[in-house]
Write a protein that binds this DNA or RNA. Structure first.
Lengths: 164, 164
DNA sequence: TATTGTTATACTCTATAACTATA
DNA sequence: TATAGTTATAGAGTATAACAATA
């Protein structure tokens, strides 16, 4: 393995319960250093927090933004189609849409082709709002760029393009 | 913005509710394509699912693994120190440790230096188990490599090194 | 007064199962 | 029979607040 062997031996701290306080930044991560999942998770948490903060005034979270964006770009989609495309459980999407519909951003239109399903559309209010959300999301994206660098951000998008 | 303008115009599907069924793979992501957070989130879900599956037989999840690894490498740490280092809420760590203590992987030792705090240690059973978990985690890491490529994985670790 | 561990609550998210109305 | 949307439940995870013991 890559970075596992580096610091596997525990740094002497104490054998019983009489250790010194433990300075937070000198604690080794050991095998975690070599795990992509660990870094990715920490980064994902940071990035979501920044997104939520940046779109705090409009009270839109990443999942809500992704749903609005996909509906905006593909009007008439069914709930199943949106759920599948974004990897959201259809049961969960129901609640997300309930909230977005209450806020008048989205409407469910009964499909006549298949009366089981709903065709999803943005309201005109939703269109206007989404345009604003996109501007704020772009601002958030600049924070990401500031944090990891322009080149690294683009590299990251290339590496992970297969997961979208 | 980078990849936002590319496909902003909705692809005609239907104005009312009479659309054709919507083929899941031809649905455009629009602005999401340019968002690092979206790709990172999808990737993080994939990677956690693979981790959980690969360590399914031993029933260890990513967070549990990270806690065991840090305690193993830094015996005697307090709960606060572990929580801070891994970015876990101290309230949540209580439950994680309850479970790991029940399974005899971890023990809380009362600290005499500061009688409010517990010094955390692996049991000998915990040490043995962790060694096995690390082998399985390394196997998981190879799945990541198979999926995105050796170079890309290393590039990713470099880019995100600042978030660990 | 402040901190450590704990308990409790609320909300997000994931994973299921079951129900209804349609197909 | 199967599918779309819905409802419900359980567990993980995050975010808080409050409390007891201790510093």
């Amino acid at each position: 393995m890559t970075a596992t062997a580096a610091q596997t031996r525990p740094r002497k701290r104490s054998g019983n319960g009489t250790a010194r306080p433990a300075d937070a930044d000198e604690i080794g991560l050991d095998a975690l250093v070599g795990h992509a999942g660990y870094a990715v998770r920490r980064f994902q948490i940071w990035i979501f927090q920044d997104f939520i903060r940046t779109l705090g005034d409009v009270d839109i979270r990443p999942t809500q933004y992704s749903v609005l964006t996909v509906i905006g770009a593909n009007p008439g989609l069914s709930q199943m189609a949106v759920a599948k495309r974004l990897g959201i459980e259809r049961a969960r999407l129901v609640h997300l849409l309930d909230s977005l519909e209450q806020r008048k951003y989205v409407k469910r239109v009964k499909s006549r082709a298949d009366r089981r399903s709903h065709a999803l559309h943005l309201t005109s209010q939703g269109e206007t709002a989404l345009a604003k959300f996109k501007r704020l999301a772009a601002e958030h994206e600049r924070h990401v760029e500031d944090r990891i660098g322009k080149e690294n951000r683009e590299q990251l998008l290339r590496i992970l393009a297969g997961f979208t």
